[in-house]
């Protein structure tokens, strides 16, 4: 698929089949279109062409099987809700219209908070959590959705060691239960340790496949070797032309 932002293509012709039941990293330099790829997969930004299929079906039909962990900056952390409330929000779709949030649902949310090590912070207002804890709240919110595919936008960005460990543990638990996670990742040091597959992106798909095979110095050089000036230039013209 090709994804455009403000009518300007930021990713060209990415064609990728996610292997199921694996942890997949999306790496690439700033502006490579990593977050955009995930947002496009979720229909949050328009696609120029192409389509996204989840488990063989259009995304619209598979919504409840996909959970999204956005970047922390995407919401207002002053909002008057507690950590538990935010996690419970992941369940609102399942609970359905008019039905109240009963103890059963709150229990599920509490368990998810427990899984990310935040059981003691359930009642805290979200602005009083540290950055790492906020990230874990988002993760817990995705966990309660009990999806099969998890899309995460830089969950490891700017978090403390405890959070990093907690997130990693959760990712591994997910894999062991047969779930798939696509994670935008910025820390090249840990890619090989954390992930089975890697998707290397720089405005286009540079390489993809098992980390051991693909995550090579050669591919890294191609991924991080600067933007393709012409690709950029033509993209801008296209945006102007349209």
């Amino acid at each position: 698929m090709t994804v455009a932002y403000h009518r300007r293509p930021v990713i060209w012709d990415v064609d990728y089949d996610t292997p199921a039941g694996e942890l997949i990293a999306i790496v690439g330099p700033n502006g490579a279109g990593k977050s955009t790829l995930i947002k496009a997969a979720l229909d949050l930004v328009p696609k120029v062409s192409g389509d996204v299929r989840v488990f063989g079906q259009p995304y619209e039909d598979q919504r409840e099987r996909v959970a999204y962990v956005p970047q922390r900056t995407s919401v207002d952390w002053d909002f008057p809700v507690s950590a538990l409330d935010v996690v419970t929000m992941g369940l609102y779709g399942k609970i359905g219209w008019f039905r109240p949030v009963t103890r059963k649902w709150r229990k599920a949310a509490r368990e998810a908070l427990d899984r990310v090590g935040l059981a003691d912070f359930a009642k805290r207002q979200i602005s009083q959590l540290s950055g790492g804890q906020q990230q874990r709240v988002f993760l817990a919110r995705a966990l309660v959705q009990e999806a099969d595919l998890y899309l995460m936008d830089e969950p490891f960005a700017g978090v403390d060691a405890a959070t990093e460990r907690a997130i990693l543990q959760v990712l591994r638990d997910l894999r062991s239960t047969g779930k798939t996670a696509l994670v935008v990742h910025h820390d090249l040091q840990t890619v090989a340790d954390y992930f089975d597959h890697v998707l290397m992106l720089n405005m286009r798909l540079v390489a993809s496949g098992p980390t051991a095979e693909v995550f090579t110095e050669e591919n890294l050089r191609r991924t991080y070797g600067g933007r393709l000036a012409l690709l950029d230039q033509v993209g801008t013209r296209l945006a102007e032309g349209q």
Binding site: T2, W12, D13, D15, V48, S49, M203, R204, L205, V206, A207, R222, L228, L230, L231, V234, R237, L238, G241
Partner: peptide
């Protein structure tokens, strides 16, 4: 340069055509 597979390069080329 972009290492895009031959089977994929043709996709949006017609749009690109007129900005070249």
């Amino acid at each position: 340069y972009a290492h895009i597979a031959p089977s994929h390069v043709d996709r949006d080329a017609d749009l690109i055509e007129h900005v070249l």
